[in-house]
Every structure is written in structure tokens, then in C-alpha cells.
Simulated scan of single mutants.
Amino acid sequence: MADIQVFPSCVALLADMVASRDADRPTSHQATLTAIERVNAKVPQLDVLRVTVGDELQGVYATLGDAMAASFALRHELVGRVDLRFGLGGGEVRILDADRGIQDGSAWLLAREAIESVEQRAAEPGLGGLRTAIRDARDVATPAAEPLGQLVDAHLARLRPGPRATLTALLEGLDNQDAARRLGITPSANSQRVTNNDLRPLAAAIRALEALP
């Protein structure tokens, strides 16, 4: 029997589709597969992001920051087409069968607890924009990560497509002129999006989350 691969301190990412029964499943599935391929090429992982049972996605990351970066990248790729919620669990992952994607460990138990938590909380009045929950049992856990992530969730939920595109350009480090050129708008219009939607502090919060251990 092959040795079991163990990641003793990592972050498991579990995602599922919000309101999946209302979606055009073939179209949503194909869009998700394309997004996963792009995110796997962009964000380093210990075990690749993939579709598992039903509408769920899973991946394993060395840090919470990498897991958050994957979640933000997925949301960018799928904005306006597929809405995802995320449960992130910090702990141990054991890969029992790499070919079949069978894994267990404390990180997965915590990720499941987290995604169930955010689904329940998002049903409460005033919390409909929440998409992320974190349960982290590692020594390097950051207690402020979940409230900061949920504050980002609430801000993203209020952004229209135009400001979302400007935020993406800002996160990619484009200056105002280059961002405006890519988006097909004037530099003045792009600058107004940044100012009117408070995109600079939002981008700073996202970068801070993506840098977490």
C-alpha cells in the first residue's frame, strides 16, 4: 500500500455554489472548470483545486493567505455567472487516495464546519453578502482573519460590475491610465470608481488577507 501523504499544517478550502438549483448547471459547471484551471495556474497549492461531489470544490494550500487568494481569484473569474461560498479550515490534511481524491484530517472537518456556518449566517438579516468563514486550529492562526474576510465579503457584495473590474485592475497593480485603457473608459471615470467605491482600502484588506501565514 502506498504511503499516505500528510500535510501537518495547511489550509483546506471547501467551496460550493450558492442557489445551485436555480443555475443553468451545464453552463455553470463549464464556467467553474475554466475558472479552476486559471486559478490553479495563478495560486500555488499543495493539492490542486478541483470539482468533487455535486457542486463542491476543494483544494489544499500551504497558508491561509494562499487559500484566500484562491477564493478571491475564483470569485473574480466567476463574477456575474457563479456565486460561491467558502469554508477554510486550518489543520492537518491526509491524502488517502490521490487518484480518487480521497482525503481526511482536521483541516477538512474544520472547513466543513466553516462552510456550514457561513451558509447559516448568510441567511440572517443584514448578513446576506457573507461568503467566507474560517476555522483555524494551527499555531499561526490569525483570529482577525474571519471578520476581516467577512468585511471584504460585504464590500464586494455591494460593488457593481464596473467597480469590480476596476478593483481587479487595482489589485493587479495597473496604474490609472493602464486600467482605464484595458477597461475601455477614461482615466477620470476609472479614478472616480476608485474614489466613490473606496476601492483602495478594500484592495489593501484583500492584500492583507492574501499575505496571512
Results as ranks from 00 to 15, higher is better:
residue 159 L to V: 11
residue 177 Q to R: 07
residue 177 Q to L: 03
residue 192 Q to D: 15
residue 188 S to P: 00
residue 192 Q to V: 11
residue 175 D to K: 01
residue 188 S to H: 07
residue 155 H to E: 11
residue 178 D to A: 05
residue 170 L to N: 02
residue 171 L to K: 00
residue 174 L to A: 02
residue 171 L to T: 06
residue 154 A to R: 10
residue 170 L to W: 01
residue 191 S to Q: 14
residue 162 G to M: 09
residue 192 Q to I: 09
residue 156 L to F: 08
residue 153 D to A: 10
residue 165 A to H: 12
residue 191 S to M: 14
residue 175 D to F: 01
residue 178 D to S: 06
residue 185 I to T: 11
residue 194 V to K: 07
residue 156 L to N: 04
residue 163 P to D: 09
residue 177 Q to D: 11
residue 154 A to E: 11
residue 163 P to F: 13
residue 176 N to I: 01
residue 162 G to H: 04
residue 164 R to L: 13
residue 177 Q to N: 05
residue 155 H to R: 10
residue 176 N to T: 03
residue 154 A to Q: 12
residue 164 R to I: 09
residue 188 S to T: 12
residue 154 A to M: 14
residue 194 V to S: 05
residue 177 Q to P: 01
residue 168 T to E: 15
residue 181 R to F: 08
residue 186 T to S: 15
residue 164 R to M: 15
residue 162 G to Q: 10
residue 172 E to A: 07
residue 186 T to G: 10
residue 158 R to T: 12
residue 167 L to W: 08
residue 171 L to M: 14
residue 190 N to H: 15
residue 170 L to Q: 10
residue 194 V to P: 08
residue 158 R to H: 10
residue 190 N to T: 03
residue 180 A to P: 00
residue 173 G to Q: 03
residue 155 H to G: 02
residue 188 S to C: 06
residue 178 D to T: 11
residue 161 P to R: 05
residue 178 D to I: 00
residue 164 R to D: 11
residue 165 A to G: 14
residue 188 S to W: 02
residue 170 L to R: 04
residue 168 T to Q: 13
residue 184 G to E: 13
residue 173 G to M: 00
residue 184 G to T: 10
residue 187 P to G: 04
residue 164 R to T: 11
residue 163 P to C: 09
residue 185 I to A: 03
residue 159 L to D: 10
residue 158 R to E: 15
residue 192 Q to F: 12
residue 168 T to P: 00
residue 183 L to M: 14
residue 190 N to M: 06
residue 157 A to F: 14
residue 178 D to E: 14
residue 183 L to C: 06
residue 182 R to F: 01
residue 176 N to V: 02
residue 189 A to V: 10
residue 160 R to H: 13
residue 167 L to Y: 09
residue 180 A to F: 02
residue 184 G to F: 07
residue 185 I to Y: 05
residue 178 D to V: 00
residue 161 P to I: 11
residue 190 N to S: 08
residue 189 A to E: 10
residue 158 R to Q: 15
residue 189 A to K: 04
residue 165 A to F: 09
residue 192 Q to G: 04
residue 194 V to E: 08
residue 162 G to P: 04
residue 154 A to F: 13
residue 154 A to T: 09
residue 185 I to C: 05
residue 169 A to V: 06
residue 173 G to N: 00
residue 186 T to C: 05
residue 165 A to Q: 13
residue 160 R to S: 14
residue 187 P to H: 04
residue 191 S to H: 03
residue 193 R to T: 05
residue 162 G to F: 12
residue 180 A to C: 02
residue 153 D to S: 06
residue 189 A to T: 14
residue 194 V to G: 02
residue 185 I to S: 04
residue 184 G to C: 02
residue 166 T to M: 13
residue 176 N to H: 07
residue 157 A to W: 07
residue 174 L to T: 02
residue 178 D to R: 05
residue 183 L to G: 04
residue 178 D to Y: 00
residue 190 N to I: 01
residue 153 D to N: 08
residue 175 D to S: 01
residue 153 D to F: 07
residue 154 A to L: 13
residue 174 L to Q: 02
residue 191 S to E: 12
residue 180 A to K: 01
residue 169 A to L: 09
residue 181 R to A: 12
residue 188 S to Y: 08
residue 176 N to G: 10
residue 163 P to M: 08
residue 169 A to Y: 01
residue 189 A to S: 15
residue 185 I to F: 10
residue 176 N to Q: 13
residue 186 T to F: 00
residue 172 E to W: 04
residue 179 A to Y: 04
residue 170 L to Y: 04
residue 161 P to S: 06
residue 159 L to Q: 07
residue 179 A to R: 03
